[in-house]
């Protein structure tokens, strides 16, 4: 049974736009071709509001608001492109590049990487913070896939796709803070996981070279994500 959803009118960057009451600011903005950088968001999975790239200013609220988890409201006045936001977004990316070992020139995802694309888009040309150079592992124990912790940005797309779409919940995050990392099962080699179905969805949604297919060389790993909106639509139909 379709619920009655009200239409809301609001302003984004001074332009009048309309959206349904159950849509997020991000959805409405993208429907109106307003660009918004995102990393943890991916169409078809739940949103967590973690990467902070899609923060926007809303008139009357003194905090910045994540557009991926905030529903539109009548009369809202949203700014997505202020100088302040641009500065923070660049800083978010700088922090990510400094956090682990992102060496594009030797990465399987070079040229097909969401992080790299965003850096180019937002004009991050160098990183002003000291690189932390953590010592991190590469897990190649799975027959078909590789997990390279050096490239992981903890967006948790893999965790969510495995839980919400595949239903296996092989992935989760262990530890916390700067020590957090993604794991399979009881923090064991991926190849020894009892729950992994080897469906590969996690690899396809991964924004960077953290998850890749075996046998791909530098710059060869491009991700195929069309399955996600397809599966989501098919499941909605069935309900």
């Amino acid at each position: 049974m379709a619920k009655q959803v009200q239409v809301k009118t609001l302003k984004i960057n001074g332009v009048d736009v309309g959206g349904r009451g159950d849509q997020t600011i991000l959805q409405v903005a993208r429907e109106h071709d307003i660009e918004m950088p995102t990393l943890c968001h991916i169409e078809g999975l739940s949103d967590v509001g973690a990467c902070r790239l899609c923060l926007v200013e809303v008139k009357g609220i003194n905090k910045l608001i994540p557009s991926c988890t905030t529903l539109v409201e009548e009369g809202m006045e949203v700014t997505t492109n202020s100088e302040r936001l641009a500065k923070y977004r660049k800083m978010v990316l700088e922090l990510l590049f400094a956090e682990r070992n992102h060496i594009c020139s030797v990465c399987v995802s070079n040229g097909h990487c969401d992080l790299q694309d965003l850096a180019r888009l937002l004009g991050v040309t160098h990183v002003r913070y000291p690189y932390r150079y953590p010592r991190l592992s590469v897990d190649a124990s799975h027959q078909r896939f590789v997990l390279d912790q050096n490239r992981c940005i903890l967006c948790t797309r893999c965790v969510r796709v495995c839980d919400e779409i595949e239903g296996a919940h092989t992935w989760d995050v262990m530890g916390r803070g700067i020590e957090a990392k993604v794991i399979t099962d009881l923090n064991q080699p991926w190849g020894s996981s009892e729950t992994c179905t080897s469906c590969g969805k996690c690899v396809q949604v991964c924004p960077t070279g953290a998850l890749s297919e075996k046998g791909k060389s530098v710059a060869e790993m491009s991700k195929r994500r069309q399955f996600l909106p397809y599966l989501t639509t098919m499941r909605e139909e069935r309900e």
Binding site: A168, D172, M174, D185, L186
Partner: peptide, 25 residues
């Protein structure tokens, strides 16, 4: 211990990785 985590996970029907994630959080 890992055995304990596995036992609790299966008894409560919670995914293994989730139990490990909680235990280390």
């Amino acid at each position: 211990e890992k055995d304990a985590l596995r036992y609790v996970a299966l008894s409560l029907r919670v995914p293994l990785s989730k139990v490990y994630g909680v235990a280390t959080f």
